[in-house]
Design a protein around this nucleic acid. Structure first.
Lengths: 340, 340
DNA sequence: CTGAAAGCGCTTACAG
DNA sequence: CTGAAAGCGCTTACAG
């Protein structure tokens, strides 16, 4: 069943069928209806490969899940990214684009480049926990379109590549201010990986908030960690051994906070009675922890949708006018209370 | 840059380049190396659309995430399915297939049929929480290949469509036996949706285990629920109001168990001191609950990979010889102990 | 070992 | 409003 068969059945030329498919107005209404009916009856759908071959557009966007096998591995059940992936897919299908998903190692840009070169995709977007500068550079220098979900995975972002931007400094500040308003003065911080921009900016925000509230920044209360559960428990252990234990802890992601909660429980201490804990990200888990975790919600769904929009605008050569700046917002649950 | 350009650069005919690409042996080694070098240098990749048009194969598999908007909605951060999706994608890419992901409503088979008819995919696989009989019937009767992750989403499975099979009865039995061995006699059950095959079979397994252990099945201890947190808490409330509270509860999925744990905590009771709780699925969350949940692990990764294998064998018309029967296995954590 | 031709199913000008 | 032709970049027989 191809366009020619439809034309024969309708007793018109192939071109006329084409016009109907393209919703061109220059077809007599009765002819058009007759053709539409035949198309419907025979469940005709134009062959996409043929169309793509001539149109040189695929209406599909690649989603590259980039792994660093030596580091953290992203499965699709990654607490942070799974929702990002989901909203990318639905944003794409809302706009009539398909999504082609691929996993690749961060050193293997070949797999990604192949998809562009063989014309499988119109553009790509990258999700990763690791630096993807090399891959992005290669894509950009070959003249292809690519977007990035996370601003932190690039050492020097090429100008004008779509990246949703999260105000991390403000987020760090807001988290600290929340605890300050609760009456806390001994506010500690467990940072993420030290080369991570988000972590650095959140730390800056924390310092600004303390300074504005005239609370001295105590170096002992800054634990240089990584975005892992272990950092959370390590920090608790370290602080327990010193004379001073903070009254509140800001964790630069939720997974760290989980580590803190576990370590506190293991030490027979209570969250929030003995220490208030606030996380960052608002990962799915956080409602289910005991106590449910107060955290800074990162609007990942909106950020992902914005990235898709930007990408599609670039593909279709339309201007993208919406903002792609986002801020984290406080979700109050039960892991924080005023100090004793 | 197309195959013709490469041929010109190499000073051979287009066909020779073709042979090199197809790894046909009938090319002189030196010619072949020269051509390969040129291909490499120019980063040539054959246009997939052109190839697909003539080969009538796409090397891509559709992943249909089917929603029932009136019921539970699957996001990609669904606790159960996110890992399934991930392993489908990696299983496909291991075998050289791309994955095209689409979300659709269970009433809208058109979107799915379109992908087949327009030749975007060679086969499809369905993930869903709802009955997809209509969609599957349509796909099958149009002669296309489709597989299903969950045996329970079909009222009457067409013969020979790939579905990984989980031994639910055995799983229910094993869960009950574990509690029996711990010394429990008052073992209750919270079932899933009553029309769900998995739930029915797990219940049978439970009954068999009790019978084998000469423990009478107490009708009050069978709570007919659904696969939701609410069922878990409802059951706890109901049992609290009767004179007899069970000493152990088998929940037919982990989410129910979460509801039980929350309700117990709210009632000031302890898991596992006051009641042992065992879940089903081994969803990511279960390690993080308080207490960490003992549960029957469903090998979703392996089941997903098996489905992909079966599908690819069908596409490539090869026999599929491996087994696609799986069993749930006990993961002991801290939510069960001997009765008081 | 290598070439020349036909065709996959569409779209895009160009005519009328 | 409608037709006939060329071409997208490949693969597949068919020759030599």
């Amino acid at each position: 069943m191809d366009i020619f068969d439809i034309a024969k059945l309708a007793g018109v030329s192939r071109k006329t069928v084409q016009r109907v498919l393209n919703k061109s107005p220059q077809v007599r209404p009765e002819t058009r209806d007759r053709i539409l009916k035949i198309i419907e009856e025979h469940q005709y759908h134009p062959n996409v490969s043929a169309r793509r071959l001539v149109k040189k557009k695929t209406q599909t966007i690649g989603l590259f899940i980039i792994q660093d096998t030596t580091k953290h591995r992203i499965y699709s059940d990654d607490l942070f990214y799974s929702v990002v992936i989901g909203s990318m897919i639905s944003a794409c299908s809302d706009r009539g684009y398909n999504v082609l998903v691929t996993m690749a190692d961060h050193k293997d840009s070949a797999a990604v480049m192949k998809l562009y070169r063989e014309k499988s995709i119109d553009a790509g977007m990258i999700i990763s926990w690791t630096n993807v500068q090399r891959i992005v550079d290669q894509i950009v220098s070959a003249g292809y379109i690519v977007g990035l979900f996370d601003q932190n995975n690039l050492s020097s972002p090429p100008p004008s590549i779509p990246i949703p931007f999260l105000q991390n400094e403000q987020g760090g500040k807001d988290a600290a201010n929340y605890l300050i308003q609760l009456g806390h003065k001994e506010i500690a911080v467990i940072t993420g990986d030290k080369d991570n921009h988000a972590s650095i900016e959140r730390l800056n925000g924390y310092k600004i908030a303390l300074k504005e509230a005239d609370i001295p920044v105590h170096p002992d209360f800054i634990f240089n960690g990584s975005f892992t559960e272990k950092s959370g428990s390590d920090a608790v252990v370290q602080w327990s051994q010193k004379e001073k234990f903070p009254s509140a802890i800001i964790c630069f992601n939720d997974v760290i906070a989980l580590g803190v909660i576990k370590a506190m429980r293991a030490a027979g201490l209570s969250v929030p009675d003995d220490v208030s804990v606030i996380g960052f990200d608002n990962v799915l888990l956080t409602e289910y922890t005991a106590p449910p975790l107060t955290t800074m919600h990162v609007p990942r769904v909106e950020m992902a949708a914005s990235l898709v929009e930007q990408l599609i605008c670039q593909i279709e050569e339309k201007p993208f006018d919406k903002s792609s700046i986002f801020k984290a917002s406080l979700i109050e649950r039960e892991s924080c209370k005023p100090p004793k």
